[in-house]
Amino acid sequence: MKNVTDRTSNPFGLRPPFDRTAPDARTAVFGYGDANADFHLIGDHPGAHGGKRSGIPFTDTDAGLAIQDIFRDLEFVSGPTDEPRFENLFGSYIHMCCLPDGHQPTQREYDDLERFFDAELRAINAHILLPVGTAATDHILETYTTQRRRFDLETDDLHAREIRGRGFMVVPIREPDEWESGDRERLVERLEAILASDYRQTKGVATTVG
């Protein structure tokens, strides 16, 4: 079932009740891209992976642009870096609201926004979930797989690894500023292999909003 919407940013009209920004600052960086995407790229928050200026996930910051560059090479992304076009790709954050520069969301702030992220993830209903960094990977493995206890998030073993979830395939991505030699290539090779496979068979069960 396809989503019928012509909205690229915040296609489902989410309105999270959270604002800790200055009056003239952006309040949130909403999910962005193809609402019928097979690949869902999931970051931490706007201060970590960008968008406080552009309003688009994975822009503005070095980390965000490094991730965007991977998907540009694989032809998921085209157009200007600060206003990219996503094809078969949706990008969003587990904590979409903006915070003052230098602030990290507290656990309570993550929890306050979790239901909005979950509703969007289930509405997109992608086949492949791509969490970036420790916070996003921890949340995705804990919430959408039964395998969180098997993994140590402090190692690089999860980077570009395929993990079966509850109706999703999860491929964690290490924080770009922690990449070592070969990490970028490993991720590109993994994504190329998935694209060459019948990856749509990875969905074992249907998921719905609710």
Rank of each mutant, 00 (worst) to 15 (best):
Met1Gln: 10
Lys2Trp: 10
Thr5Ala: 04
Asp6Cys: 08
Asp6Lys: 10
Arg7Tyr: 08
Arg7Met: 12
Arg7Ala: 15
Ser9Phe: 04
Ser9Gln: 09
Asn10Asp: 08
Pro11Ser: 00
Arg15Pro: 00
Pro23Arg: 03
Pro23Lys: 01
Asp24Val: 09
Ala25Glu: 15
Val29Thr: 08
Phe30Pro: 06
Phe30Arg: 09
Asn36Phe: 06
His40Ile: 09
His40Val: 11
Leu41Tyr: 03
Ile42His: 05
Gly43Ile: 03
Pro46Ser: 05
Ala48Ser: 15
Ala48Gly: 09
Ala48Glu: 10
Gly51Leu: 00
Thr59Leu: 05
Asp60Phe: 00
Thr61Trp: 03
Ala66Gln: 12
Ile70Leu: 14
Ile70His: 00
Phe71Trp: 05
Phe71Thr: 06
Arg72Pro: 03
Arg72Phe: 07
Asp73Lys: 12
Leu74Val: 02
Leu74Gln: 00
Phe76Pro: 01
Phe76Cys: 01
Phe76Val: 02
Val77Glu: 09
Val77Ile: 15
Gly79Leu: 06
Pro80Asp: 11
Pro80Cys: 05
Pro80Asn: 08
Thr81Ala: 15
Asp82His: 14
Pro84Leu: 07
Arg85Cys: 13
Asn88Glu: 06
Asn88Ala: 04
Phe90Pro: 05
Phe90Ala: 01
Ser92Pro: 05
Ser92Phe: 10
Ser92Ala: 11
Tyr93Ile: 01
Ile94Val: 14
His95Trp: 03
Leu99Met: 07
Leu99Val: 07
Asp101Ser: 15
Pro105Ser: 02
Thr106Trp: 07
Arg108Leu: 15
Arg108Ile: 11
Tyr110Leu: 15
Tyr110His: 13
Tyr110Cys: 07
Tyr110Trp: 10
Asp112Ala: 14
Leu113Glu: 13
Leu113Ala: 06
Phe117Pro: 00
Ala119Ser: 13
Leu121Tyr: 02
Leu121Phe: 01
Ala123Thr: 11
Ile124Gln: 03
Asn125Leu: 02
Asn125Lys: 07
Thr134Lys: 13
Asp138Met: 12
Ile140Pro: 08
Ile140Val: 12
Leu141Glu: 01
Leu141Gln: 04
Thr143Arg: 14
Tyr144Thr: 00
Thr146Leu: 14
Gln147Phe: 13
Arg148Thr: 06
Arg149Asp: 15
Phe151Cys: 03
Phe151Gly: 02
Phe151Val: 00
Phe151Asp: 02
Glu154Gln: 10
Thr155Asn: 02
Thr155Gln: 08
Asp156Gly: 10
Asp156Thr: 10
Leu158Asn: 03
Arg164Val: 12
Arg166Trp: 04
Arg166Ala: 11
Gly167Asp: 00
Gly167Lys: 02
Phe168Val: 04
Phe168Trp: 12
Met169Leu: 15
Val171Gly: 00
Pro172Tyr: 07
Ile173Asn: 07
Pro176Lys: 03
Asp177Gly: 10
Asp177Val: 07
Trp179Thr: 05
Trp179Gly: 03
Ser181Gln: 13
Gly182Asn: 06
Gly182Ala: 06
Asp183Glu: 07
Glu185Thr: 11
Arg190Leu: 04
Ile194Phe: 03
Leu195Gly: 13
Leu195Asp: 08
Ala196His: 07
Ser197Leu: 02
Asp198His: 10
Tyr199Thr: 01
Tyr199Asp: 02
Thr202Phe: 14
Thr202Gln: 09
Val205Met: 12
Ala206Glu: 12
Thr208Met: 15
Val209Thr: 11
